[in-house]
Computed example of a mutant assay.
Amino acid sequence: MGVPSQTSLAWATGPYLAVNGADLAGASVGSPFTVTLTDPGTVDDGVKFLLNNVYLGKDSTAPYQWTVTAALGARELKAKWDAAGSAQQAEAAFTVVDPNASPSPSPSPSPSPSPAGPPAVMAYGAPLDGASVPLAAFVASIANPGVVDDGISFLLNNAYLGEDSTAPYE
């Protein structure tokens, strides 16, 4: 489970998303991690969780939690619920990091850009077409998407999984 790397104990006021008791906003976490909606007040019919505006699922019982699996990089998580008929929301921008990576003592040289190829669906940094993936759950991304106007829809066996409207498309 990921652990936020925050050094201050500045706690959020009102409803907020937490990992291991610490505010998720601005944190660096390893994936997967379990997030908890803290101090939501009244919840009419459960809490919906969204990662980068893609629906993950709903928890109908307190404490309202969800296990999140996400690729490395900047992410945004939202929790949405109704309280006495009024829409409520808590959100947190955070970064997913490799918990096993050690900090680099000096800046590494930037790799030379590789030439852009055709768009491809990727998993674990390699093309997914014809590949085997070791886990039932994995993050698929689009490499070299070109210009995207309205987002990219993801389908598995022609079943809609969700849409991502911001790069990186995952």
Rank of each mutant, 00 (worst) to 15 (best):
P118I: 09
Y16V: 00
Y124S: 13
S28F: 09
L51Y: 07
S5V: 06
A92F: 06
A137F: 13
L77T: 00
S132E: 06
A79F: 08
P15T: 05
Y64T: 02
P118K: 08
D129I: 12
T69Y: 11
L135A: 15
G2A: 14
N144I: 01
D45A: 15
V3F: 13
P168R: 02
F49C: 07
D150M: 12
P32E: 10
V121L: 15
G14C: 05
A120Q: 14
D44R: 11
A167V: 10
A131C: 09
V43T: 00
A126F: 09
S60T: 15
A10V: 11
P40E: 13
G41D: 02
P40G: 06
S86V: 15
A93V: 14
T166K: 02
A140K: 13
N52W: 03
P107W: 00
G41Q: 03
R75I: 00
P107Q: 04
A140S: 15
T166V: 10
E76V: 14
V139Y: 04
P119Q: 03
L17F: 07
S114D: 02
T166F: 02
P99R: 01
T42L: 08
P4W: 01
Y64A: 01
S5W: 10
N158S: 15
P99K: 01
L9V: 09
S86P: 00
I152G: 12
P145V: 12
T61E: 15
P111N: 06
A27P: 01
P113L: 11
S104C: 01
V35Q: 05
D129A: 14
S28T: 03
P134W: 04
N158I: 12
D98T: 06
K78I: 10
S102F: 05
E91Q: 10
K80W: 05
S31T: 14
L9C: 10
D23S: 04
D129K: 10
A74G: 09
A116L: 07
L128R: 07
G26F: 03
S8A: 12
F49R: 07
E76Q: 11
G30M: 08
E91S: 14
P109K: 06
V54P: 00
A126V: 11
E170M: 12
S153P: 03
S153C: 06
E163S: 15
S106H: 04
